[in-house]
């Protein structure tokens, strides 16, 4: 796990435990993980680091996932965003804004597979080292 090609993923969720477990999960799967407990601090991390993918919770106090995604799209449209939600459905206006969404408590394997699909292969993205 010391390869420099680790992808940097940003996780934003107001659920403290959920965020912690997700970080453990992603790190176990070989990602480098940044976490943020709300929209504004998430956007700050997004601007400050070369984030390659974002895992974003939808329902958060203050700024919800939809707003955060819109801000991110306007700043770095190329970064893929995967929206997580505890609700079964999402508001229609969010649909076109993100690259995909997942319902919380789905299988963890599904989450990892979706994330993998969104990221360019290490070789394609970074070229031969």
């Amino acid at each position: 796990m010391t390869t420099p090609e680790k992808h940097l993923v940003l996780c934003i969720d107001d659920e403290r435990i959920g965020l912690r477990v997700r970080k453990l999960l992603l790190e176990g799967a070989g990602y480098e993980v940044l976490t943020a407990p709300d929209g504004p601090s998430g956007l700050a991390s997004f601007d400050a680091h070369p984030v390659e993918a974002v895992l974003l919770d939808f329902s958060m106090p203050g700024m919800d996932g939809g707003e955060v995604a819109a801000q991110m799209r306007s700043r770095k449209p190329e970064v893929p965003i995967l929206l997580l939600s505890a609700y079964v459905g999402l508001p229609a206006e969010i649909d076109g804004l993100v690259d995909g969404y997942l319902t919380k408590a789905d299988d963890a394997g599904t989450l990892l597979a979706r994330l993998q699909n969104l990221l360019p292969t290490p070789s394609a993205a970074r070229g031969p080292s």
Partner: peptide, 26 residues
Amino acid sequence: AASIAHEIHNPLDSVVNLLYLLKKDP
């Protein structure tokens, strides 16, 4: 019901992820 589903999905999500991690023989 919507609010409750949301409430339940959050901890369940953690549990699902934790079970996945446990399966990986930590």
